[in-house]
Simulated assay, not measured.
Amino acid sequence: MNELADLTESLVAIPSHEDETAAGDAIEEWLRAETDARVERDAVGNVIAYKGATDDPDADTLALVGHHDVVPPAERQTAGEGNAGEYVVERRAGRIYGRGAADMKGALAACMLAFRDAEPPDGRELAFASFVGEEVGGTGARHAIEEGFAPDHAVVAEGSTNYSKPGVTDVAVAHKGRRASTLVASGTAAHASEPEAGENAVYRASDVIDAVRELDAPEATVFGETVSGSLAVTMVHGGETWNVIPERCEVTIDERTVPGDRADIGRAAEAVDGVAWEVDQDLPPMACGDDAFADAALDAAREVHDELGLDAPGHVVKPHATDAGWLAEAGTDCLVCGASEPGEAHTDTESVGIDVLERCYRIYETLAERAF
């Protein structure tokens, strides 16, 4: 399917790590030229389109969702000095190489073509959304939700390939969230020759670290799949010079959250005098709450794999947070299904398989045309 590979290459070539405008322009222009959909471009640069069930107020809306921002490229991934200039795109050995090929302009192209080609059943409105700012905390998705974007169901086209076994594209029914927080231990400065005259913030930080280590990591079960969270101290910063008792020490915590549960970091903070807890980022987890939707998506994926002579995919859990978390938090039943394989995103050799993109296109189109 050369059209899919060509569209992927054209999107990957457009720089979008600092400014997503040009990539959004290209997506909007393609949708207006290739479809009769109602296309919108919002104030932050999200591109959203709708087709089908225009006169049915009770229509169920299924959205195919991606994002067109990327992380900064490596020098080898651009045609200019440093990370400036057009992105380098290469096609070889059945794969497309370039920044954003896997995360996630390849799957985005598959969504665009599936949105164009699918004929949704009666009572179904089909939506397409490409968000900005996914890599910096989901700013585009959050803006769209605030402005009323509220599909009943969504397939978020982040990576789910090679999770259960090599050579398959699975359907993720849940993913972890990420809460980044800081425990701030406060003390009283004094000369280090008289430590009893002060209150050592580093000691207080050490005590609260011990309290954090006693906490249980969160855990949940979704469709029989175990979602295990984690909790780790990743940085400690305290003191200013060798001969002064430190009056401040900061402890950074990375927590992977799960649907419906979180570690009780607040309890650890309260257990030590002079310690405050600050949440720096909180990306929500996702769990699909609609059995019929999850089963329909897996059936579609299995049919496509069977037609291609591939092993059957399964329901899996994804370890990384995505925009599905924001949508799920707002009430949308979400799944994650996409072409990116573990170890491809954000690397200087990032690539995606053309055959996997074609597989994803067929899964999206099949599901979009199916009642569930």
Results as ranks from 00 to 15, higher is better:
107 A>M: 00
218 P>C: 04
251 V>W: 09
272 V>T: 03
308 L>F: 09
277 W>K: 03
10 S>K: 15
237 H>K: 15
198 G>F: 00
256 R>Q: 08
348 D>M: 06
162 N>F: 12
153 H>V: 09
161 T>H: 13
98 G>M: 04
181 S>G: 14
346 H>C: 10
363 I>R: 01
334 C>D: 08
137 G>S: 04
217 A>N: 11
139 T>C: 01
61 T>Q: 10
328 A>I: 00
259 P>T: 01
125 E>S: 13
217 A>K: 13
109 A>K: 10
267 R>D: 15
11 L>T: 02
260 G>L: 06
129 A>S: 06
292 A>E: 15
171 V>N: 06
198 G>L: 01
142 R>I: 12
361 Y>N: 03
134 E>K: 08
11 L>W: 11
164 S>C: 13
122 D>F: 06
288 C>I: 13
366 T>W: 02
159 G>H: 09
152 D>V: 06
254 D>Y: 12
185 A>Y: 06
220 A>I: 04
286 M>G: 00
306 D>Y: 07
142 R>M: 14
136 V>S: 13
199 E>T: 13
187 G>D: 02
16 S>L: 06
289 G>F: 08
153 H>S: 11
254 D>W: 04
193 S>V: 11
168 V>S: 02
66 G>S: 12
51 K>E: 03
291 D>V: 05
11 L>G: 01
168 V>Y: 13
24 G>H: 06
121 P>L: 09
182 T>L: 13
123 G>A: 10
47 V>K: 01
354 I>T: 14
111 C>W: 05
37 A>R: 09
203 Y>D: 14
120 P>S: 07
322 T>W: 11
140 G>E: 13
268 A>Q: 07
